[in-house]
């Protein structure tokens, strides 16, 4: 009885974390993608796969770089 309750609680916690992680990705994903895009050159934005990291370490849209 106690074991099944603990198992049920564990499953509930796992489900809660999965839901929260999904919401976290949904919430911050677009912002992260925008941040990555802001670090790319225009050529990189068009040619590389969109979720990828910038191909260069220079920051074209930041002042002083």
């Amino acid at each position: 009885m106690a074991e099944s309750r603990i198992r049920g609680e564990f499953a509930k916690n796992v489900l809660t974390y999965l839901v929260l992680i999904a919401f976290g990705i949904f919430g911050i994903g677009p912002l992260l993608w925008t941040l990555l895009t802001s670090l790319k050159y225009e050529a990189d934005i068009v040619t590389t796969s969109p979720p990828g990291l910038p191909s260069t370490t220079r920051r074209p849209n930041c002042a002083g770089s």
Partner: peptide
């Protein structure tokens, strides 16, 4: 549910 780490995710969820 106040599980550990949910506060951080809570902040992330509220960002938009």
């Amino acid at each position: 549910r106040n599980l550990p780490g949910t506060r951080l995710i809570g902040v992330i969820v509220l960002i938009p």
